[in-house]
Design a protein around this nucleic acid. Structure first.
Length: 228
DNA sequence: GCGACAG
DNA sequence: ATCTTGTCGC
């Protein structure tokens, strides 16, 4: 896998890498029979765009892989993957039983260059991924979404279907599901609905969020890092 | 040029 | 991206 992306530090390089990623994303199903499903998310200090990132990959059926690191990249809209994906990949490396499908907190193809963090992590790890975002980075929702769980509306960016706005919980705000890697959009939506269980966010995302937060709290409880 | 901008 | 109590609506 191409992990020389860990070295990327300039926006110009990052943009070029995103074009490579977009070209390598597979939009057809290539998932195992009964994949172990996991969520991926990170936690960090409020409004800290350059500090430590606490990453977690949390399987539904086992212990989460977690890791803390200070990425070379700050948070820049459109380049989230260069801050989060390297740390998530390191957490992945530490896991014994690798998941076969990852729901990522962020966009997949619903990205200006079709290379959101879910695409980047999926291509980097060579694993099927789904992008699950709570708000849009680009594109517009085409039409209205019904109030019931499962109701949806396409998200169009520059004439292209890049995501589905999906009502996972009745009357709650929709989430935006997009292809990460090696999965079709309709299949991704099926997985997200099945894993949401009447909540707004699918279970694996919630588990990863909790695990990442726990990792950050353990890190901050150590007085050695309280400088600045 | 201006505004918008996942986490 | 975080933190917190109560409060409101299904």
């Amino acid at each position: 896998m191409s992990r020389e992306w860990l070295e990327v530090t300039s926006l110009k390089e990052a943009t070029a890498v995103q074009r490579l990623i977009a070209a390598r994303v597979e939009t057809a199903n290539r998932i195992g029979p009964s994949p172990r499903v996991a969520g991926a998310d990170v936690s960090m200090k409020w409004r800290d765009t350059r500090g430590p990132v606490h990453a977690a990959i949390a399987p539904v059926d086992g212990a989460a892989g977690t890791l803390t690191a200070i990425p070379a990249f700050p948070y820049v809209p459109g380049y989230l993957g260069f801050r989060e994906a390297p740390v998530l990949a390191a957490a992945w490396d530490a896991m014994a039983d690798k998941p076969g499908l990852i729901l990522v907190d962020g966009q997949g193809r619903a990205h200006p260059r079709r290379a959101g963090v879910a695409c980047q992590l999926g291509v980097m790890l060579d694993v099927p991924t789904i992008g699950c975002a709570k708000s849009l980075l680009c594109g517009v929702v085409e039409g209205a979404i019904g109030p019931a769980a499962g109701d949806r509306a396409p998200v169009i960016d520059r004439g292209e279907l890049v995501a589905m706005a999906l009502r996972t919980r009745p009357r709650a705000a929709p989430i935006y599901v997009s292809i990460g890697h090696r999965i079709a959009l309709d299949t991704a939506i099926d997985w997200v609905m099945r894993l949401s269980e009447g909540r707004r966010l699918p279970l694996p995302i919630r588990l990863a969020h909790d695990a990442a937060n726990a990792t950050r709290r353990a890190y901050e409880a150590t007085a050695t890092h309280q400088i600045s």
